[in-house]
Design a protein around this nucleic acid. Structure first.
Lengths: 345, 345
DNA sequence: CTGAAAGCGCTTACAG
DNA sequence: CTGAAAGCGCTTACAG
């Protein structure tokens, strides 16, 4: 029913193999034949069958995107659409299609990855997150399958894996130092889920800055919650209930910060007069908080774009050594940070 | 290199066709043989090749998602991740995969659709938007390809197309009536881009409500901008510059409303004391505006979920008559609407 | 209940 | 520069 290479061949009076070569624009075919074949293709409205090509070629020209759980609330974090926007842009430039994971649980997602890899459904994979004790990365390594991680791999394997990341440690250290320079002594850290590597890196940076400034670390100033508004709300309730509530916050994620600020507002605590906040990601809506939040722009689009660049490279040249790319971040100062004034100073 | 059906057949001492039948769990195969074959599959770590299956089956078990332009700024509207979350959930339940369009321009997207359809890359398509004079829908109809539209088809063809939509006309009418009941006489409408059908429906509902209340329509009270913060900002500047600025706004999209509110804030105009606002969509961050915005919840997740349900139905039973599903909306009252008090009343 | 064979629509050495 | 043939890894009438 659908028109195939054979139909074209018949009409153009050549062999099917010749049509195939014309499609591939082989230099070994004469211009005259090419013209003739192309005309026939045009006339019949021929379009190559993707599955047949993939089967013969053993390649699909598509990239699999693995999300923590697209059906989960976490997908609502604007980080994901933005990183996909970056991936999409580069993929489209290079003629690659995008296949999306849909699993909800860790196990379902793992099974999907197996399907993608062993079923030959995609040529390469981009992992949109990095968590500790993840089964997927070891699996992909074992099968020598081209993949790129967005984030930092956890553990000793760091050099063996191609990844794109920000210097989250340094970013967290810098913003904490910034708060210290503003005079803050009681700085708390609100992290995302603790099994995300980015959370760990933020925490380390935060702690290092305090240590360097000889500010004692306090366990109760370090809390972890889900990267959602609810998480932020829970976190700030916890912190403001302390005997000595913090005067400044480092928050791992902008959406959490929304939750934090909302709750603070309900409590009648003013930002930045009573408490300073600095956050991470600079998602599109960040500047819409009131007051607009200061946050670290991690160039989410760039993370996706560069990751795609790297998988495609890896797909085309599997022997390539692993590469690590660090996307620069920058502090976007808005209106949630203020110099602290101690009344008794 | 990869283990195939033949390897399994050899190990299990059966014919490849038998292995194939075991995979399909055909009732015509004895339990004993099934066990034997499954054991062999297990032992070899067999995994069916997706492309070979698709080629033989002429079906891919994947759904194509067509976005206005994933690489465009518009994708940053939280509507899209949320609708994809709905699609993803249902697709996963039914064992379908997701393939994403990546084109930027209308032309590129059209070409991608042709690839998906003629290349046999997907079994069905979900269109995430409905605009007038769209080439894609006629193309899909022409090829009798299973697809579902999220939104309302424009023009006479309404009955011939399967779609999922809200009653946007009614919703807009209701919220306008609500503002009228609050005493507002100067109500403006900020719509999205005018070639989106939803914009047209909103506008009609808005106008109808005014007419019913004998409030004269004013052209200068109806403006259209892109569904982004910038659009909202431009719109409100336009409206507040009028001789008689509005005392209430109906805004097509929450993200625009963020832009509107931000600009209003800069102008020192208070919401809701000086101006009331009611918006559409209720995306996740909507309640994070200050004050939290009143908006119409259109159940974005449900739109995606139901659309997926319908495409899969259509894929399985192509002869099915077109269906239209209306997802109920509901007004979420928060704090951007207030009864107007005319000083000279 | 199972097997041999043809076919899905391409690609690509191999010959010429 | 072009063709005939085998092959990619499945599925599915057709026989038995």
């Amino acid at each position: 029913m659908a028109v195939t290479i054979k139909d074209v061949a018949k009409l153009a009076n050549v062999a099917p193999s010749t049509v195939s070569r014309v499609i591939a624009n082989s230099p070994r075919i004469s211009q005259k034949t090419k013209d003739k074949v192309r005309e026939a293709m045009e006339k019949l409205g021929y379009h190559p069958n993707f599955n047949a090509r993939s089967l013969a070629n053993k390649s699909t020209n598509t990239i699999g995107i693995v999300m923590p759980s697209s059906a989960n609330k976490a997908f609502q974090n604007p980080f994901f659409p933005e990183v996909i926007r970056g991936i999409s842009t580069k993929a489209h430039q290079e003629g690659y299609g995008l296949y999306l994971s849909t699993g909800q649980t860790e196990d379902e997602i793992f099974q999907e990855v197996v399907h993608m890899v062993q079923g030959g459904r995609v040529d390469g994979i981009i992992l949109l997150y990095s968590r500790i004790n993840d089964r997927i990365m070891p699996y992909l390594k074992l099968h020598d399958f081209p993949f790129v991680l967005i984030g930092r791999p956890y553990g000793e394997q760091e050099q063996e894996i191609t990844y794109v990341n920000n210097d989250n440690y340094k970013a967290a250290k810098t913003v904490t130092e910034y708060l210290i320079l503003l005079g803050h002594q009681h700085i708390a850290f609100i992290g995302g889920e603790l099994d995300f590597v980015v959370t760990i890196d933020h925490k380390r940076g935060y702690e290092q800055a305090l240590q360097n400034a000889n500010i004692p670390l306090k366990d109760e100033y370090v809390v972890f919650h889900q990267e959602l508004q609810e998480g932020g709300q829970d976190a700030i309730i916890e912190l403001m209930s302390l005997m000595q509530p913090p005067s400044a916050l480092v928050v791992s994620d902008d959406i959490m910060t929304f939750g934090v600020m909302r709750m603070l507002n309900e409590m009648g605590i003013n930002v930045p007069d009573d408490i300073s906040i600095i956050s991470f990601n600079n998602v599109l809506v960040s500047e819409m908080s009131s007051p607009p939040m200061s946050t670290v722009d991690i160039n989410i689009f760039g993370l996706g774009f560069e990751a795609t660049n790297l998988v495609i490279e890896k797909i085309k040249q599997p022997e390539l050594e692993p590469k690590n790319v660090i996307i620069p971040h920058k502090l976007v100062k808005r209106q949630t940070c203020k110099k602290v004034v101690y009344l008794n100073s």
